[in-house]
């Protein structure tokens, strides 16, 4: 199929910052022209730090906010002119739990299913099915108010699946989930995509984007600074980081001087982070090169590169404003 499930061109959005006097202050530009294209039945991850504009993008695509300029089509329908058709084709699970605290998990799901167009009996069956699937069967008849944060999040995610949407939006779906629930959600997302559903999710974790998605876009300062498969993105960055903890402050300073490409510095803990591909060969070579006598480095650890590491690589050489200098993410 050549028609995209999500297609956006030149989206811009700014908010008039409310001032104390009650009027509006200078507008805050959140999106400065975003192009996105997501093929049907794929998983697309939008990565970005706090305030990058991820939620704003999701809300525009889900027809909840109008863009200032640009066009977007979801499931083939224009988000401005055909918003009712878009809404019948999508589901949205926002960043913060959107279920009623004073209803039980089951009541919440049944209500959402009815609103999604299911009949009474179908809604009941669907609620039971989803409670089971999200490990909430025993808690289904308790008020959500009594749930733990993770359980709440799971009901919320289940509520996004009551209908049979063509396109699902998940805004930071794994925030607040323990590793077990996170994995279960990843499986669910994989299954949805295998069934032909398009999934658009946002995350702050490269690992998650890597694990889940077919394509990734990195949003920074209102523009997409990189877009491609996770492998392509990783090839632009080292992928992992080797953290070396040094025996003495003198050794720390000596090594800092020798490694201008280090992406992480922590003088207090005398720790230095260096890009690596994570292979044993490369780690061994680095250690041998930096500490031939084997006395300076007391500990080391290899991490998957964090979003910070990717950002440092992605945003450093460009002519645009570096991290922290833009105006977009100062609330």
């Amino acid at each position: 199929m050549s028609i995209a499930a999500i297609e956006a061109t030149g989206l811009t959005k700014s908010y008039g910052a409310p001032s104390r006097a009650g009027g509006t202050g200078p507008p805050v530009t959140v999106l400065r022209g975003i192009d996105l294209r997501v093929a049907p039945g794929t998983v697309f991850a939008l990565l970005g730090p706090n305030g990058a504009g991820k939620t704003t993008t999701v809300r525009i695509l889900a027809t909840l906010t109008e863009p200032d300029a640009g066009t977007a089509a979801v499931a083939g329908y224009d988000v401005r002119d055909e918003r009712h058709r878009v809404r019948r084709a999508i589901s949205l699970t926002g960043q913060f739990a959107a279920v009623d605290e004073a209803q039980t998990g089951r009541e919440n799901l049944r209500m959402m299913a009815r609103l999604a167009g299911l009949g009474r009996a179908a809604a009941r069956a669907r609620a039971a099915e989803l409670l089971d699937r999200f490990g909430l069967y025993g808690a289904g008849d308790r008020l959500v108010r009594t749930y733990s944060g993770g359980m709440r999040r799971r009901v919320d995610l289940a509520a996004g699946l009551v209908g049979e949407p063509e396109v699902i939006f998940l805004d930071e779906p794994t925030s607040g989930l323990d590793p077990h629930s996170r994995r279960a959600l990843w499986d669910t997302v994989g299954e949805l995509a295998a069934n032909g559903t398009t999934v658009f999710l946002t995350t702050q974790y490269l690992e998650e984007a890597d694990r889940l998605s077919d394509r990734v876009a990195v949003l920074h300062d209102g523009v997409i600074v990189a877009q491609g498969t996770a492998a392509e993105l990783k090839s632009r960055t080292a992928g992992h980081r080797l953290d070396l903890t040094l025996a003495t402050s003198a050794a720390y300073l000596r090594l800092t001087a020798r490694t201008p490409h280090a992406s992480h510095h922590d003088p207090g803990a005398r720790t230095l982070g260096l890009p690596t591909d994570g292979s044993a060969r490369h780690v061994r070579a680095l250690l041998d090169e930096l500490d031939p006598a084997g006395t300076d480095v007391t500990h080391f650890a290899v991490h998957t590169a964090t979003l910070d590491d990717v950002f440092l690589t992605l945003t450093a050489p460009g002519p645009g404003p570096g991290p922290g200098q833009g105006t977009a993410h100062h609330a």
Binding site: G117, A121, A122, A125, E129, A194, N195
Partner: peptide, 16 residues
Amino acid sequence: RPSPALALTNPRTNAC
């Protein structure tokens, strides 16, 4: 749909 796990027990009634 290949996997029934997430497919609906009943099809969504035609909302239009």
